[in-house]
Design a binder for these strands. Structure first.
Lengths: 103, 103
DNA sequence: TTGACTCATAGACGATCTTCTATATAATCC
DNA sequence: GGATTATATAGAAGATCGTCTATGAGTCAA
């Protein structure tokens, strides 16, 4: 993971609407329609944010007929957060257990 | 730490120039002039980015005469990353060791 | 006190981002 | 095939962001 990847990750999560969407698809597969229903923005806006999350590798996609289901890629999120900590909080991630988990 | 704080943190780190500055003041106190010297942007631009990092609580400040020194608040960074993981990668932060460190 | 130095602030400009409406694409049903 | 449904894409408008130059504010030394 390059320095640029860390910036891309940060940009991807740097929006309230996007974080709301991330929360909705954090622990389950959910369709675009179901996401839209729980948000205060239009369906194209939801699709746009999902595209940004997709390009950053933060969500996984499963197409089923007409519907498209999304779920958060928790492993990727954890890795990116780990990179952030190693890069910007190195003195706080010094224990072996943490280092192993984040590596 | 509220949901809004997590967004503010993400916004604060979502810029390549800012991450470069963060790296420079990660493990030492460094003056604005010294930061500017190592960057490819003007001094006001550096001050602007430092203000954003300051408002997000990501840097500490020490004024000494004419100079102002900044250093990264690693503890805050670690906490914010921890919040991100708990919120968006809950299944990946299930070990006790990690939970304790992030709490 | 004057001049030099360090940093912050103000204002402007261009680029990027978020959102919308309108529409295209693709799958399903009658 | 034609209508309906689910999602993506295109294009535009407005807001936000990053950068610059110019300048203000505070500090130090002569």
């Amino acid at each position: 993971m390059t320095a640029n990847d860390v910036v891309l990750f940060a940009k991807a999560i740097a929006d309230a609407t996007r974080q709301q969407i991330m929360k909705l698809c954090c622990c389950e597969w959910i369709s675009v329609a179901d996401i839209t229903e729980k948000m205060q923005v239009s369906q194209p806006t939801v699709s746009h944010h999902l595209a940004i999350l997709r390009e950053a590798g933060l969500v996984e996609i499963r197409v089923e007929g007409r519907q498209t289901f999304y779920t958060l890629n928790q492993n990727r999120i954890a890795n990116c957060c780990g990179q952030l900590m190693v890069k910007f909080a190195p003195d706080e991630v010094s224990t072996e257990a943490i280092k192993q988990t984040l590596s």
